[in-house]
Amino acid sequence: MRPAIWLLAGLALCLFAISLLTGPAGIGPVQAITALFGLGEGPMPIVMREIRLPRAILGFAIGAGLGMTGAAMQGYLRNPLAEPGLIGVSGMAALGAVLAIQTGLSQVSGLALPFAALLGAAGGIALLFMLAGPRGGSITLILSGVAISALAGAGTALVLNLSPNPYAANEIVFWLMGSLADRSMVHVWLALPPMLLGGYMIWRTRRALDALTLGEAAAAALGVSPERLRYQLVVGVALIVGPATAVAGAIGFVGLVVPHILRPLVGARPSALLLAAGLGGAILLLGADISVRLILPERDLKLGVITALIGAPLFLHLIWKTRSGGRL
């Protein structure tokens, strides 16, 4: 387990550095690093510190958050289909964010935006756990997820279409697919603190999630309180997915793909998987964000396009496995 974690951490840091070095301005690596510490001359420090650094930090943090929430939700629901993007938690967060922006609340206080998104995410995941809690099967989970996603997507589109702003309606794509283009340090300071807190809360549930793999009765016998675990996960997931979606839109499939790929590597135990899935999520999202900048640099290709291109075939593979009698 240890070598795998170190490998993942090294890979994530490499991609973080590549993300800092990727951009249309064509700044050499040495110049980029000096500019990053504010030492270069001219506009380079502004490019590095105000444009590329926030993008790389958000790519790392949001990827890590989505990977970790995916692993935690799959552990709690004991179902490999659980993932914030796919089952509408990100969508509900996007709805909350859009409401905060279009009602003008986000202008009254900067904190209103991540907070509204957090409330949306919390609502989404609470509804999901209620409908498809620990005893619910895959069908219940997917059906409730489809319903929540559809509701959130329709609500987001409705709010944006009602906006007096002519650009708002075109932004439906951003809220459904996600993008990290031209985010600033302001967004980092809005999103990072609650995400760190959420990550800590989820990290603390790892023993309880391990116990739950033995079944609810055994977990209860080991002193795990189901209500407390559920509460911790709802708050933790909302603290991560809400602010992440508020600044980068709803990015799907990261939480689905990453735990699935890493399970053979680090084992299926939730406690082992949480950290690995966090690093894996960071790798996937940083990689996706670097590729959108390399494939179509001028078009602001959405992150969700890349993650879905990777995630959807895997999803189909999961379905294929269940159909042919394999265990999910």
């Binding site: 951009g23 380079m44 502004i46 003008g104 650009y167």
Partner: peptide, 29 residues
Amino acid sequence: GTLPMELLVMSQPDYLITGAKWPGQSRSE
């Protein structure tokens, strides 16, 4: 056409002229 913000910053213009904002909020603006 699209002008990536990095290139705008690197070009160091003497004068910056931005578009007027519409009522309501948008991420585009």
